[in-house]
Simulated scan of single mutants.
Amino acid sequence: MHYPNLVHRDWRGGVHASDALVMNFYMQHPHGRLATAAIRALELFRERIRPHALTRLNIGEGQDEPLDDATWTRIRKRTLEPEPNQSAFIEMVDDYRRFAGFCANYRGLGTIPVPWPFRKDDVSVLYFRMPTGFLVERGPKYIHALALELAAALPFNSGYADFVLCSSRHELEKALSLICPRYPGMHVAWDHGNIHHINTWVDGVHWMNFLGQPVLGKLGGLAGLREHLDLPGISLHEMSGERVLITLGDAPETGDLEAGHSLPLHRALARILEPHLFLSKSMLGKPGPEALTRWERRFLD
């Protein structure tokens, strides 16, 4: 599988968008419920990307620091022993100077729902990012197994793994020109972290689509999915705790409208998920950029 090399630079040469591999898990649970599973997933990710390493740590206190064994032991202990209603933020990267490199980012909310009306849709999120070269180096079977392993203990409402375009927010519309309209399989993800105000909506249609409650129940559970997605190339994997993984094909696909590859499996899943798909908006509930909203509906319009 060939993946396009996509980069957007500003007039000074700074990178503001690049292709990458991303795994995102959205959880409507507070940090106190997620701490053990989140730490396990973070440690598993560090182990599975070796010999690559996450070398810098940011815990939201204004400055990053080197990530070594002693530092991780301290952060691990603090994360696993939260005070009542305590939130958590952990970001680990290989190099902050590298755009869309290796990254693991966890934000666990202290309480859900958050007690401010404009943040009523906020959820806890676990985000993993790898450069495209890692996908090519290890292959889609390894990535598929890794995503399943990371998701195993997470009480997710939804999540995904896919080849995406990572973009900074203030260069978004220029970044979209790299993929729109040619590559319909490419989702737009933010360069650091991700959306948080997603409630139980589903963040797009992807190669690997993780579904939990309540959306899975609204779709009729695994039986309902089998009835509507009985198509060659779509696989359904039942997970414990009323969770399902829907995989479209053997590897991430960008599609290519210039070559007539319009991704019919993605369109089939989008039609089923349409009432539950997330459309970008600000924290205050205002619609997102029009160009991004149109791109988010590309499998529906």
Rank of each mutant, 00 (worst) to 15 (best):
P181K: 07
A53T: 11
V7I: 15
A147Q: 08
K120A: 15
A151E: 10
L219D: 08
W116T: 10
Y160G: 07
P214T: 14
G193I: 09
L172V: 06
G32E: 13
E227P: 00
P82F: 09
S158P: 06
H261T: 05
T247V: 14
L273S: 08
L57R: 11
P4L: 05
L231E: 05
H31F: 11
Y183M: 03
R267T: 09
A38G: 05
A189N: 13
R46E: 14
E274H: 10
T132L: 07
I246R: 00
A151M: 07
G62A: 04
G288W: 03
P82T: 06
L80R: 00
H196E: 12
R169L: 11
G249E: 11
A17N: 09
G220Q: 04
D19G: 03
F25K: 01
R56M: 10
Q28L: 05
G285E: 03
I246V: 15
A152E: 15
C180F: 02
L225Q: 06
W190C: 00
K141W: 01
I246W: 07
M92E: 06
G217Y: 04
H196L: 13
R226H: 12
K174C: 00
L67R: 13
L245Q: 08
H276W: 14
L165D: 14
E137N: 05
W295N: 11
D95P: 02
F128D: 04
V114C: 01
R297H: 09
L135E: 01
R46Q: 15
I198W: 03
H276Q: 11
A88M: 10
A175K: 01
G212V: 05
L178I: 04
L80Y: 04
G32Q: 13
P184F: 03
G185W: 06
S282R: 09
M283R: 09
L109K: 07
K77V: 05
S235V: 08
D203P: 06
M92L: 14
T71P: 00
G108N: 07
E91F: 02
I112F: 02
G285A: 06
F25Q: 02
P287R: 05
R78L: 13
I75H: 10
E91A: 13
Y96R: 07
A17H: 10
I234S: 05
D191E: 08
D301P: 14
G260H: 08
L219M: 15
E137S: 11
G255P: 09
P66I: 04
I246Q: 03
A17S: 12
M186T: 10
I59C: 14
G233L: 07
V15I: 15
L263R: 13
E83F: 12
D64M: 04
Q86K: 02
M92N: 01
R271F: 02
L148F: 03
L222W: 03
V202A: 11
D256Q: 10
N24D: 13
M23F: 06
Q86Y: 04
R243W: 11
F278M: 12
S282G: 15
P113Y: 02
I198F: 03
L279H: 06
A175D: 14
V188K: 01
P66Q: 10
G217F: 02
P252A: 14
H52M: 08
W190F: 11
S240D: 14
F134Q: 02
E83L: 15
F278V: 05
L146H: 06
R74E: 12
C180V: 09
E238S: 13
L279F: 05
L236A: 05
I272A: 06
A145T: 01
A259I: 01
N5F: 03
F278W: 14
